[in-house]
Simulated assay, not measured.
Amino acid sequence: MSARPCLAVTPGEPAGIGPEIVLRLALEHPELDFIAVCDPELMRERARAFDLPVHVHEENEPAAKTGASLACLAVPLAEPAEAGRLSPANAGYVLDTLRLAVERVRTGRASALVTGPVNKAIINSAGTPFSGHTEFLAGLAGVDRVVMMLAAPGLRVALVTTHLPLRDVADAITPVAVEETIRITARDLRNRFGIRKPRLQVLGLNPHAGEGGHLGSEDEAIILPAIERCRADGIDAHGPIPADTAFNPPRLTECDAVVAMYHDQGLPVLKHSGFGEAVNITLGLPFIRTSVDHGTALDIAGRGIADAGSLYTAAAMAESMAAAAR
């Protein structure tokens, strides 16, 4: 075993930039200990196409004696993948890589899972309902609730709801959903980030956090009681706080994470302040999972210009969390 935690990395959509950035990760960061769960022939083809000097081999084959190597836990593509061109035939391949990577982590042969970007639409068009990594991994792990959190330098945002149409959000803001999100976030900040007493700032749902009930009842009837129950158990949570003032720098210095009610309430601020440096983290799983903060970038796939910076940040975060959990 390496002194560094071993990571299982899934490149994601084979037509996107995922395979390229995994190759670049191996080339630019040989200090990392990771195995890519993917089709090794796909990786060889992309390495040749981009003239990347990376020796791609299956895990039971020897690595290169000199230069960069990429070990692969082999999963075959259904059909050859063309950069920039989606194919429903390979949707099952993407899900199979996730299943195998999760098995790798859950059996202790890897310390954490790091995922590359997938295309939700093509997976759904292939006949598999898929709303995102977060929900899919929760199903694989057999847990009822997980929490999607994005972290960037100086800011962490956890979400009560994730990939829902905006018209469905209010119905999904339930006492159980808010309370469990607060509890999971506080627990994992303690156990996986080493924050002894996490401070949480919980946003309201409505403008001005409901303006005393004049702009909606959810803040006082649902969110506030959930916060109070958590505080009664010693969790340092405050709110509901109006979202339009919550991200002021003085407020952020007083908390370790912001709990937002929905996807586009909290993430635009985080991605504005830390795009390319943000990491998507799934809290509440029985294993560590981090991911890039960008999509498949089909428009630049195949051009050899993709940047592996976000993937490296996700891998470094996974290493840090794995080390804290030891």
Rank of each mutant, 00 (worst) to 15 (best):
G18W: 12
I21C: 10
R24P: 08
V37T: 11
A49T: 13
P62H: 08
P62R: 07
A63F: 02
V75S: 03
L77A: 00
S87P: 00
P88L: 01
A91F: 03
G92Y: 01
G92E: 09
E103A: 10
R104T: 03
R106K: 15
R109W: 00
P117T: 11
N119E: 12
I123T: 03
N124L: 01
G127E: 13
G127W: 14
F136R: 03
A141N: 02
R145H: 05
R145V: 01
P153Y: 06
P153Q: 01
L155C: 07
R156S: 04
H163G: 07
I173Q: 00
T174Q: 13
E180M: 05
A186H: 08
R190S: 12
F193H: 14
R196I: 03
Q201S: 14
L203S: 10
G204Y: 14
G204Q: 09
N206F: 13
H208W: 15
G210M: 09
G216K: 15
A221K: 12
I222Q: 14
I223N: 05
L224H: 11
R229G: 04
R229C: 05
C230I: 06
R231M: 02
D233S: 11
A237H: 02
H238S: 15
P240V: 11
I241G: 07
A246P: 05
F247A: 08
P250K: 06
T253F: 05
E254P: 00
C255G: 08
D256M: 02
A257S: 06
M261G: 03
Y262K: 11
L283V: 06
G284N: 01
L285I: 03
F287R: 04
G295N: 04
I300G: 04
A308W: 09
R326N: 11
